[in-house]
Simulated scan of single mutants.
Amino acid sequence: MEKHPNHARGKQQIYNWARAQGWQPQMEVYLKEIAQRPDVLVQINGQPVALEFQCSPLSAQRLQERNDGYHRLGIAVYWLLGPTYYRHLRGGVVSQFTQLCADHPQLAFWRLDRQQIEFRQNYYQPVLSHSMTSTADLLLHQTQTLQRHMRYRERRWRSLVNQAYLNGHQLSACPLVAHPLVPQWPLLEQGELYWRLGIILKMTICQSGMSWQRREWNHWLIQQGRWWATPCLTKESRQRIIQKFVDQFTSDLLAAGIIQQDNDCLCLKRQPRWFDDDAAKVQYLLRGKK
Rank of each mutant, 00 (worst) to 15 (best):
H179P: 00
W110C: 07
Q147L: 15
L171H: 04
Q224Y: 04
N162W: 03
G191Y: 00
A229D: 14
P186C: 06
C232G: 10
R120S: 12
V127M: 15
K235N: 11
Q115V: 11
R156Y: 00
M150D: 09
L201E: 03
S237R: 05
Q239H: 11
V182L: 08
Q163L: 13
Q190N: 14
V182D: 05
K202R: 14
G191K: 02
Q243I: 00
L193P: 01
I242K: 01
Y124F: 13
R158D: 08
A178S: 15
L187R: 04
S211D: 08
I205Q: 13
L188Y: 00
V246T: 08
R148A: 14
Q184H: 15
W110R: 04
P126G: 04
T230G: 05
W110M: 06
S129G: 15
F109V: 06
W110A: 04
D113Y: 02
S208D: 12
W227C: 10
I205A: 15
M203G: 03
F119N: 08
Q213V: 10
A102E: 15
C174L: 08
A108M: 14
Y165A: 15
C174G: 04
G225R: 04
L193D: 01
I241Y: 01
Q116D: 14
I117P: 01
L112C: 11
A173F: 08
R214F: 01
R226P: 00
H219N: 10
I222H: 03
A164E: 05
R226H: 12
P126D: 05
P126Q: 04
Q223A: 15
G168T: 13
P186E: 02
S159Y: 07
W228L: 08
W228H: 15
P180M: 04
P231Q: 06
L140H: 03
T135E: 11
W228M: 03
Q184S: 13
L187N: 01
Q170C: 09
Q147N: 14
R120G: 11
Q239I: 00
R155I: 07
A164L: 08
